[in-house]
Design a protein around this nucleic acid. Structure first.
Length: 875
RNA sequence: GGGAGAUUAGCGCAGUUGGUAGAGUACCUGCCUUACAAGCAGAGGGUCAUAGGUUCGAGUCCUAUAUCUCCCACCA
């Protein structure tokens, strides 16, 4: 029995458990190896274990679950692999924060203890994330749940690292890298965020060595002057070109450096003179390299100045700047200071200023890799939806630089590089070597650093399937089908997965990628921790149920577009779920009043044939839309099919039969209604799995999740068209009744002209009399030979119809209304005439369209005619 | 500095080969019609940001402009 109203809270977790207990989330091939159904595989973007899921995750995972459930019911061998990400730097930052509160630090704790803490953290938060996914209804295979740092994934990482090292793609070297002085680690380019900041442009005088005056250098980083190796001017710059080759004195430390010419310098910016600090600026590094200057490091890893800065050694970088400016001012070496807005590079985790530093790190050569990533898109091995994202993806790959993959952190995959302390030999091995491969020494230590967290994420499409082992899963499910993710990790993750998969597996990891938009709050602001406007899906689920949340996320939101989340929208959308529930209650009621239901699909009336045809069309259309990843339209279609076609029409039609006095008619009508309704539940299951499952099992005792769509009965074109005509007649009757202010409860007569009506119209109306009467409160239909003038005419697609004038209520406002309608029709007639009478249109436009317009024109003319006649009735 | 997206009914939004502007919600009218008032039946409301262009025909394609949002970026 269905309750008075649906209560999701009490049921959802039980339903989920039932699915799990019955192994519904597992691929069919787990039970029958010979199953040759086509595979449909999704790997879940692993959420960071740093926290809990927000609405953005809910959107992504609902979308994935929608796809998986739909494909599962379409008969595919579906696999959805869940998992979590260790999120190296993000987690480490969190744990350090937590330690701080206890008065502890990472160093005090030591590596081993620290890692213990990290694993505890994983247990706690990873667990909560899984719980959230389950409450959302995600039908992923938990037995295959992966963690980026579990044993299996460690093997994948080691294997890939070694292979790429052996092939020369991974190398170690001292280069200028992005250094976060707070996190005390190197970062990749992708991990640097640029924010505009108000600062100054300092104009500093560098005296000529020959004491003939000074050169003014404009800089945003005065404190880096200790690392200057030269100053540069544009060789084309008339002001300075004669100075090239002369020397200037670096103030404060009084060091002589040369003036060089390099076209990198813009004549028009600042003074046209640039100080070159190769060890602390990426551009300067290139300039320095071109002119063979050795970089001079001036900073320690914690952001303090080093011994190359004279008395400023050990000063914090900002304190140094402050005092240095004062000293220069005192020496009259500051020409001026201008306010200046500059993009500041910051750490994407702790948001402190990044310092470019010379440092020995591990890198991945990205030239060949990037090409693999570009090929995937260019050769259409990979389709990114929405298409515009493809440009962003390509642009990034086209400008990519080598990837710094080592991090000076503890929580992560330790780099499998071993150094011989005696001969300096480097060994990259899957397990720790006991002796040096070169000198045989046992004095060996492992690199203390770990890998960029995105290195392991990049392997996700095959590491989750068991790589490097040649597992059945890997054979069966790689490459996967669709990836659904958020746009902020296109570079971090999507691009790198594509490159790694192509490199390691030789194949693009998935054929389609759906990039969802950003989730905003009800004011349109991006949901983020800093704005504190994030919403926990669990809260919403507890309040409204998972189905409501899911529906609200999927319904009416353009695929790939940003999405505004509000509880108000949930309340609006939730009405649909109520509608589904109530139609179930209606079925239950009807069935309870019928002794016997026998489904005989050979005995379908035209309305049954119509709804089956509509259902078939809907499924086909939805299938197509889903293949194109047009989730929004697919859900729209489901919604309108169920509410408009099924609830508003079919259900009402069926009342004419399920309450029939004829037992056989009644039994079959009930059976068919039930069958159609169960199909509706199947159709909706991917959006609102819980309630549909609940109702389905109520009616059948079977599990809905494991059902497949019924094979089509075929399409009944003729009957469908007839019913469409009946529907438009119903609308016309209702409209006409209302226009004459006839109360809905008043039963009136529908009249047809026997001589002038098409036989088709008479037959259709005759056959649909019962339904017409139910839907429009028509008492009877008169087919008359001779029409008197006591009638009022109206027109539908089936032709002309009449009401008895004396059954209607006249009103004065009728004239007004008719005139208004006439105006509208005349306007459209004019538009159509401009077309139909235009020889260009008639000859160039498609024939069918011309035909369509012509018949529309005829219809309008007769409508006009009838309105004009009607108008006469009110004279 | 470069790039992308948005601009459609009061509101928040759909609109996939160019072919008479759509649903939801709000508002208005009438209905407590035995699934559902979280409902049913109707109605009103849009020069599809602006200006040009291509076309028989443009919300849809092209070119500018404006406003908003996002991404990328080494002008010291």
């Amino acid at each position: 029995m269905l309750g008075k109203s649906y209560e999701p809270q009490s049921k959802e977790s039980l339903i989920y458990k039932k699915w799990e207990d019955n192994h519904c989330f597992k691929p069919k091939s787990d039970f029958s190896k010979s199953d040759d159904a086509e595979n449909y595989t999704i790997i879940m973007p692993p959420p960071n274990i740093t926290g809990q899921l927000h609405i953005g995750h809910a959107l992504n995972n609902t979308t994935q679950d929608f796809l998986i459930r739909f494909k599962r019911m379409k008969g595919y061998n579906t696999l959805w692999i869940p998992g979590t990400d260790h999120a190296s730097i993000a987690t480490e930052v969190k744990i350090i924060d937590a330690l701080k509160k206890e008065g502890l630090s990472k160093e005090k704790l030591g590596r081993e203890e620290f890692l213990k803490r990290a694993w505890q953290w994983n247990d706690k938060y990873g667990g909560r994330i899984k719980l959230q996914l389950k409450s959302l209804g995600c039908s992923c295979d938990w037995d295959r749940c992966a963690f980026t740092m579990d044993e299996q994934r460690q093997k994948s990482v080691l294997s890939v690292f070694k292979q790429l090292y052996d092939e020369g793609y991974i190398y170690r070297g001292e280069k200028l890298i992005n250094w976060c002085p707070t996190c005390k680690t190197a970062l990749s380019d992708a991990e640097v965020e640029h924010v505009d900041e108000n600062s100054s442009l300092w104009y500093i005088r560098y005296p000529y060595a020959d004491k003939s005056g000074y050169l003014v250098v404009a800089t945003t980083r005065p404190e880096t002057m200790f690392g200057d190796v030269c100053v540069a001017v544009n060789p084309e710059d008339e002001r300075y070109k004669d100075m090239i080759g002369k020397n200037v004195i670096l103030p404060v430390i009084n060091k002589e450096i040369p003036i060089i010419g390099d076209s990198y310098v813009e004549k028009d910016f600042g003074t046209g003179v640039v100080k070159i600090t190769p060890a602390h600026d990426f551009n300067d590094f290139e300039v320095g390299k071109r002119h063979n200057f050795a970089p001079i490091k001036i900073m320690n890893l914690d952001g303090t100045m080093n011994e190359n800065c004279g008395k400023y050694a050990n000063f914090d970088r900002y304190e140094c700047r402050k005092q240095l400016i004062e000293e220069l001012k005192a020496q009259n070496l500051i020409e001026k200071i201008e306010p200046y807005r500059l993009p500041k590079a910051t750490c994407y985790r702790c948001h402190s200023a990044i310092e470019p530093m010379m440092s020995k790190q591990w890198f991945m050569d990205m030239q060949d890799m990037a090409k693999l990533g570009l090929d995937a898109v260019d050769n259409q091995e990979l389709e990114i939806v929405p298409q515009r994202v493809q440009k962003i993806y390509k642009n990034w790959l086209e400008n990519i630089k080598d990837w710094c993959i080592s991090r000076q952190l503890w929580w992560g995959h330790r780099i499998p590089a071993y150094y011989c302390k005696d001969c300096g030999n480097t060994m990259v091995e899957l397990s720790a070597p006991k002796t040096c491969s070169k000198c045989g020494s046992q004095n060996i230590e492992q690199d203390p650093d770990v890998l960029d967290t995105w290195f392991s994420s990049a392997l996700w499409p095959f590491s989750t399937l068991g790589y490097p082992e040649k597992t059945d899963d890997l054979k069966r499910f790689f490459p996967t089908s669709t990836l659904v993710t958020a746009q902020d990790i296109i570079f971090f993750w999507v691009a790198r997965m594509v490159m790694m998969s192509k490199k390691i597996m030789g194949k693009t990891p998935f054929s389609k990628v759906l990039i969802n938009g950003i989730v905003r709050d009800d004011e349109g602001k991006k949901m983020s921790k800093s704005s504190n406007n994030g919403v926990d899906p669990i809260e919403i689920i507890e309040k409204y149920g998972a189905d409501s949340l899911r529906l609200s996320l999927l319904f009416g939101n353009g695929t790939g577009n940003d999405f505004r989340f509000s509880e108000e929208k949930i309340l609006e959308d939730r009405k649909f779920i109520n509608k589904v529930f109530n139609s179930g209650k209606f079925l239950e009621l009807v069935l309870s009043q019928t002794y016997d239901t026998k489904l005989d699909k050979t005995k379908l009336n035209i309305f049954d044939k119509w709804i089956y045809t509509k259902l078939d069309e809907a499924i086909n259309e939805i299938n197509k839309l889903i293949d194109n990843l047009d989730v929004c339209q697919a859900v729209n279609k489901m919604y309108s099919f169920v509410w408009d076609d099924f609830c508003n029409y079919y259900l009402e039609f069926s009342k004419a039969y399920v309450y029939s006095d004829d037992q056989e008619t009644r039994a079959n009508a009930c059976a068919i209604l039930k069958d159609v309704y169960l199909n509706i539940l199947k159709l909706l299951h991917p959006i609102i799995p819980f309630i549909t499952e609940d109702i389905y099992s109520n009616f059948t005792g079977e599990l809905l999740i494991s059902q497949t769509y019924a094979s089509s009965l075929g399409q009944f074109k003729k009957e469908s068209e007839d019913v469409e005509k009946i529907i438009s007649l119903i609308q016309k009757i209702r409209e006409t009744r209302l226009s004459y202010d006839v109360l809905p409860s008043k039963r009136i007569t529908l009249v047809l002209d026997k001589n002038n009506s098409k036989q088709e119209a008479i037959d259709i109306v005759e056959n649909a009399k019962l339904v017409l009467s139910k839907m429009t409160n028509i008492e009877k239909v008169d087919v008359k030979e001779n029409l008197g003038n006591d009638l009022v005419k109206f027109v539908s697609e089936l032709g002309e119809f009449y009401f008895y004038k004396n059954e209607l209520v006249d009103t004065a406002k009728e004239r007004e209304k008719i005139n208004k309608d006439l105006d509208k029709i005349n306007a459209e007639i004019k538009i159509l005439e401009s077309r139909i009478l235009n020889p260009n249109f008639v000859t160039r436009a498609p024939k069918e369209l011309v035909e369509k317009e012509k018949s529309r024109y005829d219809y309008l003319l007769s409508s006009k005619n009838s309105l004009e006649e009607k108008l006469k009735n009110f004279n």
